[in-house]
Write a protein that binds this DNA or RNA. Structure first.
Length: 279
DNA sequence: CGTATCCTGACC
DNA sequence: GGTCAGGATACG
């Protein structure tokens, strides 16, 4: 579930390896071999890491040959840096560098992917604007939603519409914007679209402000569902049956496109007045 | 458009 | 031992 902010924190860890040369990449789980055949691994030896960019939830690692590694952490992936020494549990890939340091892809569910491309072009084809980018504004959103008649919650999860939002921040943003997640994306008013964009920005900015080293931020990369831990950090996500923090009515959970959506049926309804700016 | 698939761990 | 969580993708 790492979403844009958590991927950015992960990228920062990978960035500590910039300028160093790869001495080996080992894949320790078969799921990674689908996109990264064993025969291509040897060719990475001697590649220097030039930069680590983030687009949506993807990381693009630029190598000295001009090739790029495209990494997606999916649900439970994260980077851990090591000075050599013991292997961490759930390590699925291990980059070793000439400095003696290593970068481990730690991923309990082993759904993360790494692929090797000849160049950075088309590394992440079809991705919409980053949710934190200026180009993600309400007119752009309106444009992309005009032709699509799907619930707004599902539209926010569609990376072609906007990149970087996952199930948690989609629910949180809609709560903040006071928009019913079931509303059809092509039927939203301009006021609602503005609220949604502002709420997405606000929710993500808040998450990005968290210190990556803090316990709260670390928990962001591994939500323990049903544990109630999310209760402290979220307004609606994982809070089914609990009182809404705005109106005290009970938070409901529905399934949209196979994914759970938590929302407040009272605050997030069309008849409910929305604040014009902020709040 | 929906549904299955990949994976594992947590929880019942 | 069964169910469920989840992002992206493939397929009906």
């Amino acid at each position: 579930m790492p979403e844009l902010p958590e991927v950015e924190f992960a990228a920062d860890k990978a960035r500590t390896m910039i300028g160093q040369t790869i001495t080996s990449l080992r894949l320790l789980h078969r799921s990674l071999r689908r996109n990264l055949p064993a025969r291509t691994l040897a060719s990475l030896r001697g590649e220097r890491l030039l930069s680590v960019a983030r687009r949506g939830k993807y990381q693009i690692l630029a190598l000295s040959s001009g090739r790029v590694l495209v990494v997606h952490l999916r649900m439970t992936g994260d980077w851990e840096t090591r000075e050599g020494g013991a292997m961490l549990p759930h390590t699925r890939a291990l980059f070793e560098f000439d400095s003696g340091r290593s970068l481990a892809l730690v991923d309990s569910r082993a759904l993360a992917t790494i692929s090797l491309l000849g160049n950075a072009e088309d590394a992440v084809p079809g991705l919409g604007p980053d949710a934190t980018d200026r180009s993600f504004n309400w007119t752009a959103l309106k444009d992309r939603l005009r032709t699509r008649r799907i619930p707004i919650k599902q539209a926010l999860l569609d990376q072609r519409v906007v990149a970087g939002i996952g199930n948690i921040y989609a629910a949180e943003a809609l709560w903040k914007a006071r928009v019913d997640p079931r509303r059809h994306s092509n039927m939203l008013s301009d006021v609602e679209l503005r609220s949604i964009v502002a709420a997405v920005r606000s929710v993500l900015r808040r998450a990005l402000r968290r210190n990556p080293g803090s316990p709260a931020a670390t928990a962001g990369a591994e939500v323990r569902y049903r544990s109630g831990e999310g209760d402290l950090r979220f307004n609606v996500y994982d809070r089914e049956g609990k009182p809404c923090r705005r109106c005290q009515r009970t938070i409901r959970r529905i399934v949209q496109g196979g994914r759970s959506t938590c929302f407040c049926p009272h605050c997030q309804s069309q008849s409910q007045p929305r604040p014009g700016r902020g709040a």
